[in-house]
Amino acid sequence: MQGGGDRTRGPRRHLMQDEKPSARADLFAGLAFLAFAIAIIIGSLMMDRLERLQATIYTAPGLVPALLGLMLAAMSGLLITRAIRGGALVQALPAFRPAQHWRLAVSLVLCLGFALGLVGHGLPFWAAAALFAGLYVLIFQFEDRRRDGTLARGVMFAVAYGLIAGLVNHHLFQDVFLVRLP
């Protein structure tokens, strides 16, 4: 299969948000999709065929998922083959530098913590949203504030911002949009 790179030559290429991943990344993606496709096929084949309800092979609930699983498996195979031809097996694994990913990790932890830990567990929504937004701003501004010697102001700003964000969101959605909040 062609990579489709032709269409991204020239000016469009540098504007694409997603850079092309390495052949090794493609290999892992292909393997993950292949495992997913095999799981779908196995799940579909093991599914009740409902013969007692006069279901035929064409109306069996697992028919379409099994066909989709087969298609996905075939395409994963092509992606794996393409990645191997592209040198996935001879490429060295890039060194993992946790420091480069701290922003992503912190963002993920804060978002998951808010959605799974704070919301829907008895805390009023405005308070949960205020805590999340304030903490988010404080953590991501922490380094700059400490360097500039404005940490105390940063804390006050984060608290104020969190409260405003939480209260505005809460009242806007509950009282204006009439949306039920978690």
């Binding site: 990579g3 489709g4 790179g5 999709f33 779908i40 989709l68 996905l72 395409m75 994963s76 393409r82």
Partner: peptide
Amino acid sequence: NDPLKGWMAGFAGLF
């Protein structure tokens, strides 16, 4: 910019 991956995403969506 990669049709194969686009189709894989599409079939994953169908599933």
